[in-house]
Design a protein around this nucleic acid. Structure first.
Lengths: 338, 338
DNA sequence: ACTAAAGAATGAATCGTTTCATGCTCATGA
DNA sequence: TCATGAGCATGAAACGATTCATTCTTTAGT
């Protein structure tokens, strides 16, 4: 019933070693033999057992990717980029959703470790990176994605979130807005916090500008809508005249709340800037201004970095090469009056 | 260096069999022993090697999921649903993108087969299901998702696409439109073809209505924009007065093309209906009417079905239970004048 | 004709976990 | 006192592919 190399070997009249060679280094086996073995394989419908292969090899041929939410187009893009680069290297990507939850993240990492992945790309659910040592110490390299590593311990591929926040809010201030609201996700999420710092930087540079923070439990369209309804419920004079959303999903939700039901006009009453510049940003009710990040490139580079760490001299590279940082870019559309 | 059960056993002063029991059936081992072993595990930082485990077990604890494009929010939702159900059963989901390409799909399936997955959920890239037999014959069950199985061979979870197409176009016809364009993806994609048939059904029921088909190479925002630009380039009188897009991504692209640059008004000049009702549909320039499918439920049910096939009596269940079909639902918004 | 070297093929050992038939100990009841 | 059985623990065998030192075969060179 079970077809293994042994059965194939018997059918082809060769030894198991030869079958293995045909499978892994066909060039070292004469043409004729390859054919004979190949034929036996097809005939018997032999399928390599990857578990046995990995067991022997001691490693798998996959890398892990843990993101907060693959439903977010931004991370979907990151994943595509990662998969592209991994496929080039003949590797598979194992995906895990953390839901911005440390426990879930840990569970995924532990699982990946059991699978003996070559390493993992991680967008951390929180700033608590200490718990990662457990994994890196055990020899599972981790590359932080969209989250800058503090010191030399971890490699990272990030985008300057503080600068992104500054860009967004400066833009709103330049458009004459003064009462800015930052609709954020949980502050434990590093990106959210950094963007806020950038926003503060920008506000601090303009004397009469003020910044209000509205914190939502997660970075979803739904929460954006909730925040929007909350703002709409306020008296007009208590409302901000501009909103900077921590990501486009929140922004879309806000837009939905403003546009339908409440008669708040964007950008006249409230100007808006989102973050990530997902594909849908330019197709929203009011085309959404947003801070663009090179999502796909982020994933691609993350895997690339990981492969370098694996192959190349461990740990030696300039610390510089291990902490890559891209710059964000503001894309102005109608929602900010521009 | 390598820490295996053997080392743990030595450290705890027990046999490997006992360590294994602590790991897998702690209830059969006295409290004290469990503690001692547990402590050794922590101390040595032992991590189970899943490859060895699987090798012994002969199966993995994961199931595969192959979709055309995880970047499409619809499939992202399907994936979430699948993951939810799988996690309940203590299983992991392996993800593969086919890019609507048969070869890629086959590569993923082959890989999953090597991993000895318990089965796979597949949204086929084309109508060529014959090539799947190779896998099912080898004992890897396949559940079709968002694609109805023809006969009894395969299980499936689908949504009635023909009815969905009919719903969409009837709605446009009821709004008084007569020159309908169906902006489709590759016709080899079953869903695309079925929705077209539904559209034809609806058009056939109204004497002076005509249907034009504009076929795009893929179901993406980019292709939608291309189609939109193509339509915008036509003389006004040659344009359709309504467009039914094969999915929301295309619809968003069309909307982008119509709204910016060309002065085509939606729904006045051209009414629109999309498909899938993704989260963003209600936040587009002109809120998009769309045919809603229970995406998450689709994924959830797919895994559920798979688990039943695995656990329960193989192949015996009423053929009826193995081919589940949900009904779509029209959500009318501004884009269709509704 | 004989040796050396190159080319093919071999198959036992190995990876780390789980299983399971077997053995040991101790308490209970006859 | 002895048999019985329950409760634990044991450790060799098995899973299936890969590796590598070894053997066998052929060819080339002198």
């Amino acid at each position: 019933m079970a077809v293994g190399v042994k059965e194939v070997a018997a059918a082809a009249g060769v030894s198991v070693g030869t079958v293995s060679n045909v499978l892994n280094r066909p060039d070292r086996v004469p043409e004729g033999t390859v054919q004979r073995v190949q034929q036996a394989i097809d005939q018997l419908g032999f399928v390599r057992n990857d578990a046995a292969r990995q067991l022997r090899a001691g490693r798998s041929r996959s890398i892990g990717l843990v993101v907060p939410d693959i439903g977010n187009p931004f991370f979907a893009e990151v994943a595509r980029g990662a998969e592209d680069r991994a496929a080039d290297a003949g590797m598979t990507v194992l995906l895990g959703n953390s839901d911005e939850n440390d426990a879930r993240q840990g569970a995924h990492l532990a699982l990946f470790q059991e699978q003996r992945v070559n390493g993992v790309l991680l967008t951390p659910a929180s700033d608590d990176l200490a718990s990662l040592r457990r994994f890196t110490d055990a020899g599972m390299p981790i590359v932080l994605v969209d989250h800058e590593a503090e010191e030399g311990a971890l490699a990272s591929v990030a985008v300057d979130d503080r600068e992104g926040g500054r860009l967004a809010v400066s833009h709103l201030l330049q458009a004459g807005r003064r009462r800015i609201a930052y609709v954020s996700g949980p502050r434990t999420v590093r990106q959210v916090a950094q963007r806020l710092r950038g926003a503060e930087d920008a506000v601090a540079a303009v004397p009469d500008a003020v910044l209000e923070v509205i914190e939502q439990p997660s970075l979803t369209v739904l929460q954006g809508r909730a925040a929007g309804e909350q703002l709409a419920a306020r008296a007009a004079e208590d409302r901000p005249d501009a909103v900077f959303a921590a990501n486009d999903l929140l922004a879309v939700g806000l837009l939905q709340a403003f546009s339908f039901g409440s008669g708040i006009r964007v950008p006249e009453d409230i100007a808006m800037v989102g973050y990530d510049d997902i594909d849908f940003a330019s197709a929203t009710v009011v085309p959404l201004s947003s801070v663009r990040q090179p999502a796909r490139l982020l994933g691609w580079t993350g895997v690339d970095l990981l492969l370098k760490e694996l192959g190349g001299a461990t740990q030696d590279g300039d610390d510089h090469d291990r902490r890559i940082r891209f710059q964000p870019e503001l894309v102005a559309r109608d929602s900010s009056g521009g």
